[in-house]
């Protein structure tokens, strides 16, 4: 087949399209110019502003608190759900399976809206607790998917072997099953933590007064185009954090991968 040049050109242009905005953002976080239309000198002023902003520190604390609670609860629920989905079959599990899948395809906006209506209807006070409930709800599905993938590779005859060697079901679960699933559970927890820290849309709907998380604060700054260079600085810091976290988790995973048969 005659090779057309079109695909290669598209590839290069799309890659530029993907990276250019992010590169401009990072460069502008060090730019003295307020709107970044030209380079007017190197500065760390915006980072200093950021350091002094009490709202941001408060929101960061909220974000970390919510993410920690949601990660722990959704990891436990998601792992148990994955085990049930893998081991048990029947009508109830079909329904369970559907319930796990649905939140993955539901637009965030609808999920946030329906949870808001639910909280108002039952009289649940909006605040950090309602944010945690919402985050746990969407994280369960992701954790369950990741752990399920790991479970499908697990050889359950290992459990039989443990029983034959005299282990009771507690010992077999904690000494054989859980260690084998650990990388999957850790990956699921990491995903849940990231999703929770990153979420804006659902949080926006279910947050009450004084319970702003970091994305909610960033949003209100963005919306009014206030402190644009400060948001650049904050974004750059978040970028660095994400890169280090994802990069190191990838490294850990790769190392584990080579150790295992």
């Amino acid at each position: 087949m005659k090779r057309s040049r079109l695909p290669a050109v598209t590839l290069v242009l799309v890659m530029v399209f993907f990276y250019l905005p992010i590169i401009i953002l990072v460069v502008n976080s060090f730019n003295e110019h307020k709107y970044g239309s030209a380079w007017s000198g190197f500065t760390l002023e915006w980072y200093v502003h950021l350091w002094k902003d009490a709202d941001i520190w408060h929101a960061l604390r909220n974000s970390l608190l919510v993410a920690s609670v949601s990660t722990v609860v959704s990891t436990v629920l998601g792992t148990v759900a994955a085990y049930a989905l893998d081991r048990v079959h029947g009508k109830l599990q079909k329904f369970h399976n559907g319930l796990i899948y649905m939140p993955l395809v539901m637009p965030d906006l609808l999920m946030g809206m329906s949870l808001l209506l639910f909280f108002v209807a039952v009289g649940f006070k909006l605040g950090l607790a309602s944010i945690c409930v919402a985050h746990i709800t969407f994280c369960i599905s992701y954790v369950a998917m990741v752990v399920l993938a790991r479970l499908q590779d697990f050889d359950f005859s290992m459990m039989e072997a443990a029983y034959d060697l005299g282990a009771n079901s507690w010992t077999a679960t904690t000494r054989v099953l859980l260690p084998a699933l650990a990388p999957g559970i850790a990956a699921g927890a990491l995903l849940a933590f990231t999703l929770s820290i990153d979420d804006f849309v659902i949080t926006f709907f279910v947050a009450g007064p004084g319970s702003n998380t970091l994305p909610v604060v960033i949003y209100s700054m963005m919306k009014h185009s206030r402190f644009m260079p400060v948001i650049n600085a904050l974004s750059t810091l978040l970028l660095v954090v994400t890169f280090v976290a994802v990069g190191s988790s990838q490294l850990i995973n790769n190392k584990k991968g080579t150790d295992l048969p």
């Binding site: 436990v76 629920l77 998601g78 148990v80 759900a81 085990y83 049930a84 081991r87 048990v88 109830l92 599990q93 329904f95 369970h96 319930l99 796990i100 649905m102 939140p103 539901m106 609808l110 999920m111 809206m113 329906s114 949870l115 209506l117 639910f118 209807a121 409930v133 919402a134 746990i136 709800t137 369960i140 369950a144």
Partner: peptide, 27 residues
């Protein structure tokens, strides 16, 4: 045992996902 294993996530999702979604149509 199987039932007990599916209950936690099933109950959570029925309460905080299915019910709220249906509620949208009612409200």
């Amino acid at each position: 045992k199987e039932w007990l294993l599916s209950i936690p996530s099933l109950a959570w999702l029925v309460f905080f996902f299915l019910l709220p979604t249906l509620m949208v149509f009612v409200i």
